[in-house]
């Protein structure tokens, strides 16, 4: 097959005058979207919004969240000091028996690193948008709350087959003999949120702000700001299971978060300040 030869050097420059404003906007948007994919590829595939690039828009994206308020938690891993106050608060508020837990803190050790040797990873129910436990339950005893997206339990329907405990890729469930049902984190809906509180037990007990709880649909909310940015990488646990979790993780050290919360005003590296 032969291609016609075009001599670009001899062609006349059309200029940008002939490009309509609409077309230009489309092009720029595309560029941003691609940048979003590139820089924040992990976010894109993992956050609850399917198939949108966060970088490309403001309010229009908010509407795409399936719930409102869409409760979510961002865990800033560098800030966790394993004081376990969140676990204690959770146990107390939700009457968790001593053989069970709704949340816990995992320890990851490193060798050969210069800055730190250990990291703590708080884990809890991920309130997945495609929750495997909800699909597995034979009696709809566990369900996605249609308003908030919280994965909740209707204890009286639980037959105790324990399929949900095995379906959960986050080990977020245990069988509570006291409730005669499987028990799990409900973002403190029963004990706090439904009574007007805005924070969960664990997030308000956290002394360092490692657990940041909020509404992912509200652009003023810290959770929204932490998720909708490209500077810091955000990830979720076990992404391969494709459950679209609502617990996001980031390193989230103070300086970078500060940057994000100050409307992402980019600070140039200034050696004199170090």
């Amino acid at each position: 097959m032969k291609f016609p030869k075009i001599n670009f050097d001899d062609m006349k420059n059309e200029g940008t005058g002939s490009v309509t404003a609409h077309e230009r906007r489309k092009f720029l948007k595309l560029g941003l979207a691609i940048a979003g994919v590139y820089a924040g590829g992990k976010i894109l595939s993992l956050t609850s919004i399917v198939g949108t690039a966060h970088a490309s828009g403001g309010t229009s994206i908010v509407k795409r969240y399936p719930y409102n308020p869409h409760y979510s938690m961002v865990i800033r891993q560098s800030l966790c000091i394993d004081c376990e106050r969140c676990v204690d608060a959770c146990n107390e508020i939700n009457n968790v028996p001593e053989y069970g837990y709704r949340t816990r803190i995992l320890t990851k050790k490193y060798t050969g690193t210069l800055d730190k040797r250990v990291e703590f990873i708080p884990v809890l129910c991920n309130h997945c948008n495609d929750a495997p436990c909800v699909r597995a339950c034979p009696t709809k005893a566990t369900y996605k709350d249609p308003v908030t997206g919280i994965v909740r339990m209707e204890s009286k329907k639980c037959i105790g087959c324990k399929t949900c405990m095995l379906a959960c890729p986050y080990d977020a469930r245990y069988f509570s003999a006291e409730r005669h049902a499987v028990d799990k984190c409900d973002f403190c809906w029963e004990e706090r949120l439904s009574k007007g509180d805005t924070q969960t037990g664990c997030s308000s007990a956290c002394p360092t702000g490692a657990r940041t709880f909020g509404n992912l649909t509200d652009p003023d909310n810290i959770v929204y700001k932490l998720v909708h940015q490209l500077e810091e990488q955000i990830w979720v646990l076990r992404p391969a299971d494709d459950t679209k979790p609502n617990i996001f993780y980031m390193k989230g050290n103070i300086r970078s978060v500060d940057n994000i919360l100050n409307e992402q005003k980019f600070k140039y590296f200034d050696p004199s300040n170090v």
């Binding site: 597995a136 009696t139 709809k140 329907k157 639980c158 037959i159 105790g160 005669h180």
Partner: peptide, 20 residues
């Protein structure tokens, strides 16, 4: 754990996408 509940809720609250 609650076999007696199964008889009731399997019938009146079925989850058709559940293998169980």
């Amino acid at each position: 754990e609650n076999p007696f509940r199964m008889a009731i809720w399997n019938v009146i609250s079925p989850n058709f996408v559940s293998n169980m």
